[in-house]
Simulated scan of single mutants.
Amino acid sequence: MPHVREHTLDGTRGPVAVREWPHPAPRYLALVVHGYGEHAGRYDGLAAVLTGHGAAVYGPDHVGHGRSAGERVVIEDFEDVVTDVHRAADLARAAHPGLPLVLVGHSMGGLIAARYAQRYGVELSALILSGPVIGDWALPGRLLALPEIPDTPVSPAALSRDPAVGAAYAADPLVWHGPMKRPTLEAFARTLETVARSGDVGALPLLWLHGDDDRLVPLPGSRTGVARLAGGRATERIFPGARHEVFHETDKEEVFGEVLRFLDRTLPG
């Protein structure tokens, strides 16, 4: 497991825990934006690949997630989460000034990363979205129409074809294993609309990764959002048979290879 450091930032709604996977002499910075119900610590594998490629890697736990403050999985306003992620980027830049910054967002983190790129895209050198909640995602509207949110947690089997991934997820005490909460669903619906109407990211290089058997965030809905966000300029890589977490899939080495080739084409030097 890679060496890690822990930081705590003053977030918009309380203390935010930030995980750092350091590099002794990095040539770029990578900021990992995790998904719903999980935490940055689940990205050790991706961080090892990126540090091996020359990055110092940082990952905040969002409000209500992981080791950060807040009622579990309650996000009332994703704009606040974007601000918290920006503070984590400031932490990274203060330690390593002048380096290119790459933003990697998975699932809900893809929505946060997309909005970050709309607000702070001039500070980014590249954007990578994995199974992003962006575009047409029917789940919030479907659940909000019910009088009560059903107690249906994320199925570990939906994450990866590797059963060890689901087992580790199910046993992780920092992962939320309960139902979604109404304020978070309402915030999802608002932010999907905000991203849809807030324009594209211009010439910012964007890599979109998705499994074609993703049942949590179906591929067609994401495609609509990515096309709009990238202005038709995204590099896409769809993985046959892969489920929601391509960084934890049985063909993850192929996924990591796509990421590194994209960064080699994109980053200076």
Rank of each mutant, 00 (worst) to 15 (best):
I128F: 06
A187W: 00
S222Y: 09
G54D: 07
A187G: 07
S125D: 15
H23W: 03
V63A: 04
R115A: 13
L207D: 08
G199I: 10
A113H: 04
A69Y: 11
Y58N: 06
A126D: 09
R215A: 12
G11P: 08
V255A: 05
P150M: 00
V16L: 12
E20R: 06
A242L: 06
P153M: 01
L192I: 14
P218H: 12
G141I: 07
D61H: 00
R27I: 12
M180S: 14
V32H: 07
G52V: 10
L111W: 01
L99E: 04
A168S: 15
L144Y: 01
I134P: 07
R27H: 14
L50C: 09
R19Y: 11
D264Q: 11
Q118H: 05
Y169L: 15
D151P: 13
H210N: 14
A189P: 07
T51R: 06
R243S: 10
V57R: 01
V165H: 04
D84I: 09
D212Y: 00
V32K: 04
R93K: 09
G64R: 06
T224E: 13
G178F: 08
H62R: 03
H86P: 05
G232Y: 14
P156I: 01
A89V: 05
V33L: 10
V85E: 13
R119I: 01
L159P: 04
E79N: 15
L174W: 10
A170Q: 02
G221S: 07
G232W: 12
A170E: 01
R197L: 07
R228H: 07
L103G: 11
A47F: 08
T224H: 12
P220L: 13
E20Q: 13
D10Y: 05
L209K: 07
H53V: 01
L29Y: 06
R237H: 15
R142C: 02
P220F: 13
V201D: 05
V255C: 08
A167V: 04
H62L: 10
A56Y: 05
A187R: 02
T191E: 14
T266H: 03
L111P: 11
